[in-house]
Nucleic acid binder design. Sequence first.
DNA 1: CAGTGAGCGAGCTTCCGCTTGACTT
Length: 780
Amino acid sequence: MAKNLLIVESPAKAKTIEKILGDDFEVKSCYGHIRDLKKEEMGIDIKNNYQPTYIIPEDKEKVVKELKQLSKKSSQVWLATDEDREGEAISWHLCEVLGLDPATTKRIIFHEITKPAIRAAVENPRTVDMNLVNAQQARRILDRVVGFELSPVLWRKMSMKNNLSAGRVQSVAVRLIAEREREINAFKPASSYRIEALFTAKDISGKPVGFTAEGKKQSSAESAEKFLQSCIGGVYTVADIQVKPGKKSPPAPFTTSTLQQEASRKLGYSVSRTMVLAQKLYESGRITYMRTDSLNLSETAMESITAQINAQYGKKYLQPRKFKNKNESAQEAHEAIRPTDMQTASIEDSDSKRLYELIWKRTIASQMSDAELERTTARISISTNKEELTAQGEVLKFDGFLKVYMEDRDEEDLMEDERQEGMLPPLTVNQELPLKEMKATERFSRPLPRYTEASLVKKLEELGIGRPSTYAPTISTIQKRGYVEKRDKEGVKRDFQILRLKNGKLTSETAQENTGAEKSKLFPTDLGLVVTDFLKQHFNDVMDYHFTARIEQEFDEVAAGKLKWNKMIDDFYNPFKKDVENTIENAERIKGERELGIDEASGKKVIARMGRYGPMVQIGDVSDEEKPRFAKLKNTQSIETISFEEAMELFKLPRQLGGFEDKEVTVNIGRFGPYIAHDKNFYSLGKELDPYSITLEEAIPIIVEKRKAKAERTIKIFEKEKIQVLRGPYGPYIKQGLRNYKIPKEQQETAAELDLEEVKKIIEEAKANPPKKSFRKKKA
DNA sequence: CAGTGAGCGAGCTTCCGCTTGACTT
């Protein structure tokens, strides 16, 4: 029997620590929080100074039971949960549940899982810091109050489905996306003309090479033309050359947020995919903990990184550094994300290979030398006017960390920086340069791009909203609730002008570019837009981008013992509750109504608004004698941007296409998208076919094909019993009514020969042994 | 599977932050 029981949060950690501590210690994990507020009455007794009631969630009962037993058998319990607010609270909950005295139970912390760190921790135990615990309780209670008071307001004021939600984090995340969308919609591109002159000069070997020099941006076609005119017959001379050294420093090692960003930019992973793969790497002992905001590398890690750089790249490439977290909300309970073994630069054929290599490179690069550059700027004078041109070149003198790793940049940061910096041939002052051609190209200003999952995480982190463990879940929540959609957007063609000066002659041409195309970006839905407007109007405080930062300061005061947690909650709750009551009492239902125009045929108003089943357009009013006409918006359309013409187009469905086999063929858009209806059967339209323009000739093959496919899928039908034996993607199966039943493996080969008795037997057996319940509750 | 569109109100939903599961219908 072990004398000592040491409890950590993560089972993977427990395994490692047990090895380090040896036989005297039994190391167990509690798998994160073991208690939570009960859901009834919010789990908070508001009248009694916000007294919380905690329960042990069902899925934690097993681990709590085990810890209780082990705790009873041990003479000493060590609480080694993470060193942050949440970790401290977990330790306190453990005390409560295991019947330990928080004033005397040994509480230890370590930031890295190494022998010296853990030994040192065990030698310097403290006790649970109740101020920090109270800060966590305040955080928990505030989040519960905000979530459980706001969500029901939405249920009452929105005539839509019943699982809407609002919260301190998710609602602000949606707001970011909503506001970005509106900025983009309101954006008016301004055009200007970029001046580029193409010269040639000899390189070191005497070979002529081309290079580009830029002139001052011109604000209109007229001024651009005037400028080119003034250059006709000009002589171009190098007026001045400046050479400046420059350097680039490597980025810090990965945190959760930067890992998600880089995996998105470099590998195209969603944040949840990144986290799933990182979790695998962590569990197999390949990397350190993946939910972290810390930039620290342990002493031992630094040693092995240093050794690796020296061995692989040489001393010249080594430049050890400590990175400081700029983020105030960082709690730094763990290390940065790094490989556990720096000698392993790559791992074998697993799907997490690419992510691992990314982590390895980033970790190595963070301790490598700066890259050294030389930036050359040449000013070129024009004999025929006062303006000058500048040519810039950049030469890498020493690659440093760039040998291993180059951080990608977000679109957002690339915007104004279109200049491509290449090499310049050697130039001398007073050297005359022959002009090949000069171009004035029309360029348009662009709005900020829509958020990707990862750039949203970056923004949230900057605002201090959310934690490493919640970025991925938050992004999936706002999509699940239907506030936000991830999708592509096709660009639109746009003409732009190019003026060209060549051989002393000025010409002009029109070219075309694609603009506004987006891939895998976050778009707000109409639901997201109207809910955001509603919440902003009535709960401006909570929706403020700096709300979290402000209350974090107060949590810090609670943690420092300067502020009582229930006083803090009380100060927040009273005005908040008034807003809630006032909103329930007085606010109108959320409609998001927008008038589009007048329908000529009926003379009635055409409006777009939120309906019971989503965004729609409507001709006429419910108070009219005649019932209004309704049509659902397409999922790429929005109440805010739909035009009158687009709205009228929607009323053209359902369409009668004509007759086929003596039955009418109609086309419409239904619950599951566009479809053709014929003889009480329905046929989905593929993406290529547009219900507004499809013809009878195009519709008939769809009907015929579908019938054929259905026949091919069918192995056997027992008409009377309404049982079918069908061919599915996982092999043959049995269908009775709406339910499917698996055919046992040994009978799959001969599925065609099954008789009614056998089929019934399979169904009976399947019913008697239902598949095991999945862990997660399934809800539509 | 392919409807609906207002409001009443059974009984339900909902938050954020810790941590891993066992699911192939």
